[in-house]
């Protein structure tokens, strides 16, 4: 994805991560990194997903994504337990660049405290924080 994009249906963490609360289940969310994060990182060449069952703590790192240049921590926007990881990224990590909000999702999480999402940012606020 060459152009910056921040969909309105996502919640954003200021450390450049997003969460999408499942439409049919307010206690489950899909998570990934934002367009800004993947652009700053460069082409993702390695993603080592944490195992299903890993407990995430909001604002703490739960995984790493690597580009040729650097390693970057992925911060959990919300707390909970990983119920699914995107195994397709092991073979094709650049999907995180190509489709950061779709095929490039990282984990699905059963939320331990759905009310935490009130602290996350909407697209406009997150974008404003990027300084244009």
């Amino acid at each position: 994805m060459a152009q910056a994009s921040y969909p309105d249906d996502l919640l954003y963490h200021p450390e450049h991560d997003w969460a999408r609360i499942d439409a049919g289940d307010a206690e489950q969310a899909t998570m990934g990194i934002t367009w800004y994060a993947q652009d700053a990182l460069g082409e993702v060449v390695f993603f080592d997903p944490p195992p299903v069952g890993t407990m995430l703590t909001k604002d703490a790192s739960y995984a790493e994504v690597e580009s040729v240049k650097a390693v970057s921590d992925v911060i959990a926007p919300l707390s909970g337990e990983i119920v699914e990881v995107n195994d397709a990224l092991v073979e094709n990590p650049a999907m995180i660049n190509e489709d950061p909000y779709g095929e490039g999702w990282l984990v699905k999480v059963r939320l331990s405290d759905p009310s935490e999402s009130e602290a996350l940012l909407d697209a406009a606020t997150y974008k404003a924080g990027l300084g244009g």
């Binding site: 060459a2 993947q38 652009d39 460069g42 082409e43 580009s67 040729v68 240049k69 650049a94 660049n97």
Partner: peptide, 11 residues
Amino acid sequence: PVQYGGPPAVR
């Protein structure tokens, strides 16, 4: 310049 353009640029 570290790279010219978006993510696959280095490669």
